[in-house]
Write a protein that binds this DNA or RNA. Structure first.
Length: 217
DNA sequence: TTTCCGATGTACT
DNA sequence: GTACATCGGAAAA
C-alpha cells in the first residue's frame, strides 16, 4: 500500500479530508505522532465553526490556502491545532484531536507533566499541542513544506473499516453532525466512543495497517 | 468507574 | 460581560 497524497487530501473539503488524514504523521522537530482522531469544521454552513461568522484576526488562516496550520487558544489555557482544507475561497479546517506518539516520545514527558501513561500524552487537542510543542507561534505555517517547523508526512491510509464516525465533542452548536472520525481500537483517542458512534459500513475484513500503539509506557 | 466544576485568555455581543 | 472546538482534580458511587 502506497503512502497517501497529502496535497490531494487537503484540497478536499474538511468533511471529505478528515477521515483521510487519519494515520498521517504530524511532526514538530524530533517529535511526531500519527493522527488518530479528527473533527471536520466547515465554513458559513457550520454554526460550530470559527469561520461561521466570517474572517476575523483569529480565524483568518481558515480562509486562506489549504495545507496551512490554524492554531488558536482554547479556554485561555490550551492550544488547538487545525489543518486548513478545501479551496481557497471556501473556509474550513480539520481539528486534530489526538495523535499516537511515535517519535521523540521521551521529549514529550516534560511538556506533559500530568501524564502517567503514554496514552495520556496526546489524547486530546490541547494535550497533543503540549506534547509536540505546538503553540500560537506556529499559526499559518505550511504543513506540506518539508522545511516548516510543523509538517505533515504521508504514511499509509487507515483502512476504511477501521474509521469510526460520530458527533463532535465539546461544542454547543450543530452538535448532531457526525463529523468526528477516530481510528477504531486505538488507545490514544480523547474519549471512549459515545453512544451513537458507528463503524463505517464497509465490512470487507482487511488487515489493519495501523492497529494502535503499545499500551502503557 | 462516572460526574461535576474551576482555571484562564481571547473573541465577540 | 459572556461564551468557549479543554483539562484535570475532587467527590460520589
Amino acid at each position: 500500500m502506497a503512502a497517501v497524497d497529502l496535497a490531494a487530501i487537503v484540497a478536499q473539503r474538511p468533511l471529505d479530508a478528515a477521515p483521510l488524514l487519519l494515520g498521517q504523521r504530524l511532526t514538530v522537530g524530533t517529535r511526531s505522532g500519527r493522527i488518530v482522531e479528527v473533527e471536520a469544521y466547515e465554513g458559513s454552513d457550520d454554526a460550530a465553526s470559527h469561520a461561521h461568522r466570517g474572517p476575523t484576526d483569529r480565524n483568518r488562516v481558515m480562509f486562506g490556502h489549504q495545507g496551512r496550520l490554524y492554531v488558536y487558544r482554547s479556554y485561555g489555557i490550551h492550544w488547538c491545532a487545525n489543518i486548513v482544507c478545501g479551496p481557497v475561497d471556501v473556509p474550513g479546517a480539520v481539528l486534530i484531536r489526538a495523535v499516537d506518539p511515535d517519535r521523540g516520545i521521551e521529549a514529550m514527558w516534560p511538556d506533559r507533566p500530568k501524564a502517567r501513561k503514554q496514552t495520556d500524552l496526546a489524547s486530546g487537542p490541547g494535550k497533543l499541542c503540549a506534547a509536540l510543542g505546538i503553540d500560537g507561534g506556529h499559526n499559518t505555517v505550511d504543513l506540506l513544506d518539508t522545511a516548516a517547523p510543523v509538517r505533515l508526512e504521508a504514511l499509509d491510509a487507515v483502512s476504511e473499516e477501521l474509521v469510526l464516525t460520530g458527533p463532535r465533542i465539546g461544542i454547543t452548536k450543530a452538535v448532531e453532525r457526525p463529523w468526528r472520525f477516530v481510528v477504531d481500537g486505538n488507545p490514544n483517542v480523547s474519549r471512549p466512543r459515545p453512544p451513537g458512534f458507528a463503524a463505517n459500513p464497509t465490512p470487507s475484513g482487511a488487515e489493519a495497517p495501523m492497529p494502535g500503539s503499545s499500551e502503557d509506557g
